[in-house]
Design a protein around this nucleic acid. Structure first.
Length: 135
DNA sequence: GCCAACGTTGGC
DNA sequence: GCCAACGTTGGC
C-alpha cells in the first residue's frame, strides 16, 4: 500500500465534483514527474485530495481503483491516467499553512516543489495528516 | 497582479 | 547538447 497526494484546482474539478461523481478518471496530467508518480500507483493505494489556488488545503481521501493506462485525451500517447474513487471526508481540512508549520511535514514536495501535481507521501506523513484531519 | 520556480521549445 | 526565451503553475 502506497500513499499519494493529488492536486486539483477547485475551479476546474473540486472536491464536491469528486463526491458527486464518486469515481473519476485522473487524466490531463502533462508533466513527466507527475506521470511517473501515477505509474507507480496500484489499485487500493490512497490519495490525499488537495485544492490548489483556492483553499490551499487537503480536503479528503480518494482510492485508486484502476491502474495507470494511456490517457485517452492525450494524442501524443506519452501520458496516462488512473481512476480514483471517493473514500472519505476529513472532519477538518488540513491547510497548506499548517503543513508548512509542522517540522515533520517539511519534505512533502507540496512545499518545495509547488508545481508538482502528483506526489508520494510517506506512511509517517500520511498518518500525521490523517490524524489532523480527524480533528 | 506579481513573481519564483520550474518545464518546454527552438536556434545555434 | 547548450542555453536563452518563453510559458505555466501556484503561492502570496
Amino acid at each position: 500500500m502506497k500513499y499519494w497526494l493529488i492536486k486539483s484546482e477547485p475551479n476546474c474539478y473540486s472536491w464536491s465534483d469528486m463526491k458527486k461523481d464518486v469515481t473519476t478518471t485522473w487524466d490531463g496530467v502533462r508533466n513527466y514527474q507527475a506521470r511517473n508518480n501515477m505509474k507507480e500507483m496500484s489499485v487500493g493505494d490512497l490519495c490525499l485530495f488537495y485544492h490548489s489556488n483556492i483553499g490551499k488545503e487537503i480536503v479528503g481521501i480518494v482510492q485508486v481503483i484502476s491502474p495507470f493506462t494511456s490517457d485517452i485525451s492525450d494524442a501524443s500517447g506519452k501520458f496516462g491516467m488512473v481512476k480514483v474513487k471517493y473514500k472519505k471526508d476529513f472532519k477538518k481540512n488540513i491547510k497548506l499553512s499548517e503543513i508548512k508549520l509542522h517540522p515533520k511535514l517539511q519534505n512533502i514536495p507540496l512545499i518545495k516543489q509547488s508545481r508538482l501535481s502528483v506526489m508520494p507521501i510517506s506512511k509517517e506523513e500520511w498518518d500525521l495528516i490523517v490524524c489532523f484531519g480527524e480533528g
